[in-house]
């Protein structure tokens, strides 16, 4: 069983020539995620969501605090879906999949083809990324993250650059593929509807990188954005978001 343990995580970026002030991206985040759950991290721009994900993925070092990402006591394999697809433009779709796969065999190729079929892209494996639409490229990004058989799946606003219709269809693909694999997932978003549609639990980050709220979403799957129950939870999350904003404003006034 995969576990993500985050204790008092702080990240401060030092001043740079282009931005001569230090920036606190995370200000003491603590949380834990255990088991096959889908957790959405919801927060406005500047609340440190991407920084949090990068530290969990091990591609950034925290300033203070600790992160443990383990599967049965050993370091967990991580799959990452980025905001942009981040595909090698000079490699075919299939080669992009195999680039992250450590085993090189017919089996890994079959697995890559399987995950491409799960996102409806069996027929474009031989094409280059530039030949695909943005939505198709992002579907390759999703399939690639599942290909490494991750214990933990990290997703950083993967649909934020998509139009509403494309985003909706990609969410459908993600729901189906996740229902099939049920990996521990940490999904960063600023879209309340997206968070409610996908997650079992929503962690709300406030600006400055502090967990403000932890909201369970106990709704049956698959969920549709037009479901009344989804809409009700969305309203509740928005209400709490408003109270968070009020708290932030109140805090600002006190300072």
């Amino acid at each position: 069983m995969a576990t993500i343990l985050i204790e008092n995580l702080t990240k401060v970026y030092p001043p740079t020539p282009t931005y001569p002030q230090q920036v606190q991206a995370l200000g003491g985040v603590s949380m834990s995620v255990t088991g096959n759950v889908f957790v959405a991290v919801l927060g406005p721009s500047g609340s440190g969501k991407t920084t949090l994900l990068n530290i969990v993925a091990g591609v950034e070092e925290p300033t203070a605090g600790a992160v443990r990402v383990v599967q049965d006591g050993v370091p967990a394999q991580v799959g990452y879906v980025f905001q942009e697809p981040r595909l090698l433009p000079w490699r075919s779709v299939l080669d992009n999949m195999l680039y992250v796969q450590n085993r090189k065999s017919d089996r890994s190729k079959r697995e890559a083809e399987f995950y491409l079929s799960m996102v409806g892209l069996s027929d474009v494996a031989h094409l280059y990324p530039a030949q695909l639409s943005a939505g198709m490229q992002q579907r390759v990004g999703i399939a690639r993250a599942f290909l490494v058989n991750p214990d933990v799946l990290l997703m950083d606003e993967p649909f934020s650059h998509m139009d509403a219709l494309t985003g909706r269809s990609l969410r459908d693909y993600l729901q189906r593929i996740w229902a099939h694999t049920r990996k521990t997932a940490l999904f960063v978003t600023h879209d309340v509807g997206e968070a409610v549609e996908l997650a079992d639990r929503i962690l709300m980050l406030r600006p400055g990188g502090v967990v403000f709220d932890d909201i369970p979403v106990n709704l049956p799957r698959p969920r549709r954005p037009d479901d009344a129950a989804v809409h009700a939870v969305e309203t509740e999350v928005l209400r709490r978001f408003d109270s968070m904003e009020a708290a932030v404003r109140f805090g600002d006034q006190r300072n």
Binding site: V59, V78, F82, E84, R86, L88
Partner: peptide
């Protein structure tokens, strides 16, 4: 971003 992606997937 491609280097970051390679880091995240632990590409040798």
């Amino acid at each position: 971003g491609l280097a970051l992606m390679s880091d995240a997937f632990r590409v040798p």
